[in-house]
Design a protein around this nucleic acid. Structure first.
Lengths: 102, 102
DNA sequence: CGCTGGTATCAGCAGGCGGTGATGTGAAAG
DNA sequence: CTTTCACATCACCGCCTGCTGATACCAGCG
């Protein structure tokens, strides 16, 4: 039983703008220009966040001419979902386990 | 369709120590003293993090004499799991939706 | 070629957040 | 009542991180 979640991955998704990017990419594959339009953030800022998401394995790039398309890697999100589900189930079954007061 | 996750909740879980606390509470209900033993963190530090977790609705308290027991609220974790699952599924089905280059 | 436009990298700055020590509070023990 | 212990709150500091402007890179187009 794992009952643990990767802290780095959650931290990466903890940023509001990054989470917004993920939500947008969950609907369609977009390039940086589209994300600039949708979020209103500066291109530099987005590029930084996209780098973080890339290094965390959340998104992957697909060059298309001079554009760079970003798409989600659903396995990562699905893995997170499973880990949280495992945590929730563990919490449910352990609701009564109360360690004695010292 | 929501395809979105509460940023605040994820940010709260993004901290390594808080995540560790959640993992420990997923196994058994504990009071602050136990958490101090398990994590090795200072009591003040833990109290701060527990306050954050409490205000985020992740944990709930149960006074027992002069001890305060902390237990997880599984619904919150289950909700997160569902939201991530929805995001993953949305990402899977939208894998081919590529917006035209501007 | 040189130019243009899309994207990535770098350096710097400012705000936020986690860690810590001192202190307050409230309940049981003596 | 006084002491003790579990826990919370407050104030402060240092660092991390996100935002920004300048700049470099790279692909297509003339």
């Amino acid at each position: 039983m794992l009952t643990s979640v990767d802290p780095d991955l959650i931290r990466v998704l903890g940023d509001p703008l990054r989470l917004r990017i993920v939500a947008l990419l969950a609907r369609e594959t977009l390039c940086t220009t589209h994300l600039v339009e949708e979020t209103g953030a500066k291109q530099t800022n987005l590029s930084n966040h996209l780098k973080v998401l890339r290094e965390a394995g959340v998104v992957e790039t697909e060059p298309c001419g001079r554009f760079t398309y970003y798409k989600l890697r659903p396995e990562v999100l699905a893995g997170l979902s499973e880990q949280f589900a495992a945590l929730a189930e563990s919490a449910r079954s352990a609701a009564g386990n109360k360690r004695a007061c010292p």
